[in-house]
Design a protein around this nucleic acid. Structure first.
Lengths: 336, 336
DNA sequence: CGACGGATTTACATCGGTGTACTACATCGG
DNA sequence: CCGATGTAGTACACCGATGTAAATCCGTCG
C-alpha cells in the first residue's frame, strides 16, 4: 500500500492533521515542527492522495481545458500556453477534446469529469445562443473564443473584428479589390466564422467595394484539406479574384497548396491571408500573412480570471478582448 | 450540494450499494431494478464523484499521457489519437507536458498526479538508460518512443530503423549521394536522433557511400525554427549536398523554408525528406516526403496494452514496433 | 414441506485526507 | 493577578463511493 499521511505523521511524531496543515501552508506551525514533517515526507516519499483531499475539501488543483481538437495547431499551441499559465498557479490542466461536436461539448460541461476539476476553460464551437442556460454551471468557468454572447460567464475573446479588419484593410491598401473568403459557415449567425466574415464585409464596405457573395466559400472543419477543397471549388467556378482571406491559418495553408498546384503565383496573382499566427505560418512557402490573436495573453488572462473565480470572486462577469497583432508576410507582400 | 448516490438510492427506493452496482455493470440485478435506478439517475442528473470512487477502489478511469509539448504537431496528433483510443475503453486522458526536461519527466513518473491516474502513456525524451530503474513504478505504464531500451516496461515503438532506411534508400535510388542530416544530438548514444542517424549511416554504407560527418548538423528542439537555423548553418559552410534528411518533419519544414529563402530549388537542387508524416507534410510547398510512423496504430496498441496491464496482466513485457509507411512527395520526386 | 443453492439486495466499515471545535500554553495590558 | 488574545497542535466526524460479508428472496428437489 502507498504511504499515507498517517504514516508521515507517525514518522514525524505529530498528528495527521498537523501534516495536513504543513502541506497546505497553514501559518501557525513552529518552524521545528514543519522541518520534522517535511523530513518525514521526504524520507517516506509521500505524495498526497488528491482524491481524498478532493472528497473532503472539494479542491483538486486541476482545471480542464475543453477544445475541439489538438490536431488544429491553434488549439495545440493554446493548450501549451494554458498549461504554462496554469502551472504558475500550481494547477494542472486536464485536456478534453470535444471534436467541435455540440453533444460532446455539452457533456464536457455537465459536472465536468465527475467533480474532479476545480474550473473549466471552455472553447466551444458547436454551441449556439440557445445553449446559454447550460453555461450556468456550478463549476467556475471561463469561455475562450466568442461563440456565445453575453453569457453568464467570463469571456476572453480574440479580437476577431479588429484583427480581421486590419488584415482586410491591408489587402485593400495593396489595391486588391476582388477578395475571396474561405471558411464561412452559411447557417450560422454567431461564432467565429460569422464574426470574421462580418468584419470582412464591413471593411469592404468602408472602402466602397461591394461584397462579392459568390467569392465566399464554406470550409468544413477548418483543416488544411478543407482549405484546399474550398480553393479548388472556387477555382472551378472560373471566377477572378486577386486575394483570399482564409478565416484561419490552416485553411489558408490548404488554399495556398491548391493555388500553387494550379500554378497560380502568390502573392503576384493572388494574395493569401489567414488568422491565428500558428508557428507554421512563419515557415510555410510563402510565409503567411496572418493575425496573431495572442494566445499567450489569452491563456494567461483566462487562467488568472478562472483562479479568481475559483477563489470565490463573484463580481460582475468580465468580457476581455486580447490585443491582436497583424503579421505581414510573403503571402501578401512578396519576398521584397 | 451536488447529487450523491444516496439521493439516487432514495429516489429509486433501493440501497446506495445497488446504485453502485448498476453503475458498475454488476450482473446480478433484476431488469426492473436497473431501470428504476437508471431513471432516478437521469431524473436527478446524477454524475458519479470520481474522487470518492478512487479513494475506495483505486480506479479513476483516467490515464495520463506524458509528452514533451503539444506545439509539436506529432505529439498533438498523437494525443488526439490516444484520446480517441482511450475513449473506446471508456477512459479519459490527462495530458501532461514535460518540455522534454529530464526533471519534469521524472516528476511525471513519481506517483503521477497524486494517485489519480490508473495508467501512464509515457513518451520521454530526456531520460537515459541510467534512469531505467525509475521506470519501475507501481502505476502501470507503456512507453512510447524508444529512448530507453529493454526497460522493465511495455514499449510501443516507431519503426525508426526501417523507416529511416526506406527513406534514405529512396534518396540514394534517385542518385543522390551527398545527403546531409539535420537534427542529430551529438552527445546522445540512445534516443530517436541517434537511432535514426544510425540507420541513415548504415544505409549509406550499404550503398558504398561514405558517411559525410561534416554534413550532419544538430537541431536543438526539433522545431521549425531549429530546422531553418540548422540549414542556414549548413549553407554557411559552403559545402555541397544534393539531399537533406531531416530527423523529423518540423525540422524538414524549417529547412525547406531556409533553402527556399536562398533560392535553392527543391527537389531539383536539393531533395528534402522528413519523418512523422504530420498533416502539414501533405500541404506544404513542396509537399514533403516523409515516413509515417502510424500514430493511430501506436496509440491504439499502447492503450490496449495499458488496459491489459491495468487489469492486472503481468506477463512478460512486450516490445512492439508499429509498421511504418513511406510517403513519397514533391520534396524528393518533383511535381511529376 | 423444509432444505438447498443461486440470484438479488443490503448493512457497514472504510479508503485518506480536512473542516470544525477544542485544548493548552504564552504573552500582554491593566 | 486576571481575562483577552494569539500561537500551536489535536480529536473526531465526515466527504461519497465500494469491498466484504451477510441477509433475503425464490424456484427446485428429495
Amino acid at each position: 500500500m502507498a504511504v499515507t499521511m498517517r504514516d508521515v505523521a507517525r514518522e514525524a511524531g505529530v498528528s495527521p492533521k498537523t501534516v495536513s496543515n504543513v502541506m497546505n501552508g497553514y501559518p501557525y506551525i513552529r518552524e521545528e515542527t514543519r522541518t520534522k514533517v517535511l523530513a518525514a515526507i521526504d524520507a517516506l516519499g509521500y505524495r498526497m492522495n488528491i482524491s481524498a483531499r478532493n472528497l473532503k475539501s472539494g479542491r483538486t488543483g486541476i482545471i480542464a481545458l475543453a477544445v475541439p481538437e489538438l490536431s488544429n495547431p491553434y488549439f495545440a499551441e493554446l493548450a501549451d500556453a494554458a498549461i504554462e499559465a496554469a502551472g504558475e498557479h500550481g494547477l494542472t490542466v486536464m485536456i478534453e477534446t470535444t471534436g467541435a461536436d455540440r453533444d460532446r461539448e455539452l457533456t464536457a460541461l455537465a459536472r465536468p469529469r465527475g467533480h474532479l476539476v476545480d474550473g473549466l476553460l471552455y472553447s466551444p464551437l458547436g454551441l449556439g445562443p440557445e445553449d446559454v442556460d447550460q453555461l450556468r454551471t456550478p463549476t467556475p468557468m471561463v469561455l475562450l473564443g466568442e461563440r456565445i454572447f453575453h453569457g453568464p460567464v467570463d469571456h476572453v475573446m480574440i479580437d476577431n473584428v479588429d484583427g480581421t479588419k486590419a488584415v482586410v484593410r491591408h489587402l485593400l491598401d495593396q489595391g486588391r479589390r476582388k477578395i475571396a473568403v474561405i471558411g464561412i459557415r452559411p447557417g450560422e449567425a454567431v461564432g467565429t466564422a460569422a464574426i470574421r466574415y462580418g468584419a470582412y464585409a464591413e471593411t469592404l464596405a468602408e472602402y466602397g467595394v461591394t461584397v462579392p457573395t459568390d467569392l465566399a466559400v464554406s470550409g468544413g472543419k477548418w483543416h488544411r484539406s478543407s482549405g484546399a477543397d474550398a480553393m479548388e471549388e472556387l477555382l472551378a467556378t472560373g471566377q477572378k479574384f486577386d486575394a483570399v482571406l482564409a478565416l484561419n491559418d490552416t485553411l489558408a495553408l490548404g488554399a495556398v497548396r491548391a493555388l500553387t498546384a494550379h500554378g497560380i503565383r502568390i502573392p503576384d496573382d493572388v494574395a493569401v491571408a489567414g488568422f491565428d499566427n500558428i508557428d507554421e505560418a512563419s515557415f510555410s512557402s510563402p510565409t503567411l500573412t496572418t493575425v496573431d490573436p495572442n494566445r499567450v495573453h489569452i491563456a494567461r488572462t483566462a487562467v488568472d480570471l478562472l483562479v479568481k473565480r475559483m477563489a470565490g470572486d463573484d463580481s460582475e462577469h468580465h468580457e476581455i478582448i486580447a490585443p491582436y497583432q497583424l503579421h505581414l508576410r510573403e503571402s501578401t507582400v512578396g519576398v521584397d
